[in-house]
């Protein structure tokens, strides 16, 4: 069965898929962060998604009332448990996206929600595209998702396009010189390495596409 809209079940499937993907990628993300940061991005996200799974396992009475409510819980859990730079950034992004998301979001509504998440990241962290941050994965994903929605693509196809764009965006951070976050301290020495946060952002979007395709 492929999902036509982002309902609560798909939201939960997405987050559980994402949690598993974070677990698998923990060492890779930490290795990327060791090269140009402080070597904790993988463990930060693992800690966060472990708490998120616990929150999903103990839903409110009667279950999450909407996919937006579920994503807001994901967001506040990440904000509360991760710390570091990525904790509040992802936390506020999920909260903002959840607040924007209607109960049964079609691809266009999903694009709006993701755009709200991106806006939250940019408002909080002040990063511009090209600063070598998770913005560089999220921004092209928003554009790709919106473009796919405009051509009437299914949710599975639209989210796959978003994930592709995010992965390209993450890869394209490699030659960039970081201007935000810890990697920016390296100046020119930050080039030649892929940004850990952009990498994890792409991973989260791939998890959405995978869940939507199931």
């Amino acid at each position: 069965m492929t999902h036509r809209t982002l309902d609560t079940a798909l939201a939960e499937a997405w987050i559980r898929t994402a949690a598993a993907a974070v677990e698998d990628a923990e060492r890779h993300l930490t290795a990327l962060d060791t090269a140009i940061g402080d070597g904790d991005h993988g463990s930060n996200l693992r800690r966060g998604f472990t708490a998120v799974l616990a929150a999903l396992d103990a839903p409110p009475e009667g279950g999450f009332e909407s996919p937006g409510a579920l994503l807001r819980t994901v967001g506040s859990t990440l904000t509360a448990k991760v710390g570091g730079a990525s904790g509040p950034l992802y936390g506020q992004a999920f909260r903002a996206a959840g607040a924007e998301l209607p109960p049964d979001a079609d691809p266009a509504a999903c694009a709006d929600a993701l755009a709200a998440g991106l806006a939250a990241v940019r408002a909080l962290g002040g990063a511009e595209p090209g600063d070598k941050t998770l913005v560089d994965a999220l921004a092209p994903a928003v554009d790709a998702l919106r473009a796919a929605a405009e051509t009437g693509a299914t949710l599975a196809r639209a989210t796959a396009a978003a994930a592709d764009a995010a992965e390209r965006g993450a890869r394209d951070t490699t030659p960039l010189q970081a201007r935000r976050g810890r990697a920016s301290y390296l100046g020119p020495r930050s080039t030649g390495h892929q940004d850990p946060g952009a990498t994890s952002a792409a991973l989260l979007l791939r998890a959405l596409a995978d869940a939507a395709a199931r």
Binding site: D40, S43, T79, K81, V82, G83, A85, P88
Partner: peptide
């Protein structure tokens, strides 16, 4: 916070 990781807001 955790080692080299700032504490989250509620802490």
């Amino acid at each position: 916070g955790e080692l080299f990781t700032s504490p989250p807001p509620d802490r």
